[in-house]
Amino acid sequence: MRNMFSDAPRTTLTAFYWAFLLYLLLPLTLMMAMSFKDANFVAFPIGDWTLDWYAKVMQDKQFLEACLYSVMIAAASTLAATTLGTWIAMLIVAEGIKGQVIIFALACLPAVVPGMISAISMRIFISTIDMPTGTAAIILGHTVHAVPFVVVMALTRLRSMPGNLVDAARDLGADSVVAFFRVTLPYLGPALVGGMIFCVLLSIDDFVRTFFLGGYRPTLPMLIFAKVQGGMSPEINAMATLVLVVTAAVGLYAEYLTRRARTR
């Protein structure tokens, strides 16, 4: 059946795909390659390879502290967003509750509002409730940002769940809370782990919310922003490469998990 498509468009499309992939990967590959170069600027061929920049980055106390701070914020906001997102998704699929469409729309609101405006409105909000800028405010901002994604992922999984699983648990005497923790939550498990990793990446990557809600302690994106504003340097290359490798590995793992969840 497939040879129905004549060969010319197929070849063109294949070439286009690889060209597009090259476009996507070239800048990043270049960045990674230059992180091994011993000179201070871009040049070809790379010539002498070195790991000096990595050694320098690994000793950079500011960088390590920023990493730690980012990871801490990501962990806290992910935990909060996953709990809230699952809870909201449970409310949306619950029987006998009116206005589910409105609840869903409200849950998705932060995903539709452009990042800059979401950051500004959060900045105004924390000032109206007399909350100082800093760690707590950043975590709050990141949580609001991540909740819609958890809701959508949990909903997709919940809608594919056979309804009789919970009914069976209830017949056997479990109350709603027990049925949730013993039946629904394990069923949601893989989707939630995938969603959590997505939240972590979202939080670690976020710049604009942190910029408006944070204090003087820089997160990873803020540190990179400050360094990039200072101009090109192989040290940034090494730093960015390290971050890229770690986040890509984590992202790949999340992709694997959600894929497995979908096929199971």
């Binding site: 996507l24 960045m31 670690i204 986040t247």
Partner: peptide, 30 residues
């Protein structure tokens, strides 16, 4: 999946890689 790889790099890192490409002493000009 191949297309998703750069997606995990994050906003600032991707922006920086574009700077590496287009700057006066960037890859294209060199």
């Amino acid at each position: 999946l191949l297309l998703l790889v750069p997606f995990w790099a994050g906003e600032l890192i991707r922006t920086f890689s574009v700077i590496m490409l287009l700057a006066n002493r960037g890859a294209v000009n060199v």
